[in-house]
């Protein structure tokens, strides 16, 4: 039919149940699945015993091309430490009016303290809300990100399994099975992703307790009571 053949092509499409597009956040399927490597709003992670991972080293602030991160570190109180180490980040602010979600901070972080969640649907109406402080960034006791009133977390269950973390260049636990392969850092609320195609070893358990078992830390006594 040539030129007029287009009429048939479009006519065959009408009334189909399965559409290429979905109704946004409604009905079956809800929101579209987020890509594994989507860069969303940051979270500050904690170890499973509740200790913060951030050590206040300011590498993230240094690497940030948009200058949107402000970090100040401070010495831990030996009696009641915030993080397992000498120092912790006592000020941590990200200005989302400037953040470009490049994920460089995540890659710079030596302790995997900062990762990006899959949340990108958040809008604020004033500058105060745009600057996330540590109180808003740190994950809750369940390990899940805090859900602020101007953020749309309606698909949390769907994205939780495929959340955040960062892509490693090297093996996280030093395992040769991971060398040159995509790997994912673990997260408190979401756990560690299953190995991807080509990865033979099981995903390493990166919880604080493993680290504790391998190296004698100064806080063993302080947390002995919490271990069961």
């Amino acid at each position: 039919m040539g030129y007029l053949g287009g009429f048939l092509v479009t006519f065959r499409q009408r009334g189909r149940k399965q559409r290429y597009t979905r109704e946004y956040a409604k009905g079956e399927g809800g929101k579209r699945d987020k890509p594994d490597r989507l860069h969303g709003r940051h979270v500050l992670n904690r170890y499973e015993d509740g200790m913060e991972k951030c050590i206040g080293c300011e590498l993230c602030a240094g690497v940030c091309p948009a200058n949107c991160i402000y970090v100040r570190g401070a010495d831990n109180d030996p009696a009641a430490p915030t993080s397992p180490g000498e120092r912790f980040g006592f000020v941590y602010e990200i200005n989302y009016l400037r953040c470009i979600h490049c994920d460089l901070c995540v890659e710079a972080c030596p302790t995997e303290a900062i990762t990006e969640s899959k949340l990108f649907e958040f809008s604020f109406t004033n500058r105060q809300d745009a600057i996330y402080t540590k109180a808003e960034l740190v994950v809750g006791d369940d390990g899940l990100p805090q859900r602020l009133p101007w953020e749309d977390w309606s698909d949390l269950d769907a994205v939780a399994a495929r959340s955040s973390a960062w892509v490693r260049a090297t093996a996280p636990g030093g395992s040769v099975d991971y060398e040159g392969k995509v790997g994912w850092s673990g997260e408190l609320g979401f756990g560690v992703k299953a190995p991807e195609l080509g990865q033979t070893a099981p995903a390493p358990d990166l919880s604080y307790h493993d680290v504790e078992a391998e190296a004698e830390g100064p806080f063993d006594d302080a947390h002995a009571g919490e271990d069961d």
Partner: peptide
């Protein structure tokens, strides 16, 4: 036109 192009079109 969305129907003919296998899309949903305005729905909000």
């Amino acid at each position: 036109i969305s129907d003919l192009q296998n899309r949903i079109g305005p729905n909000r």
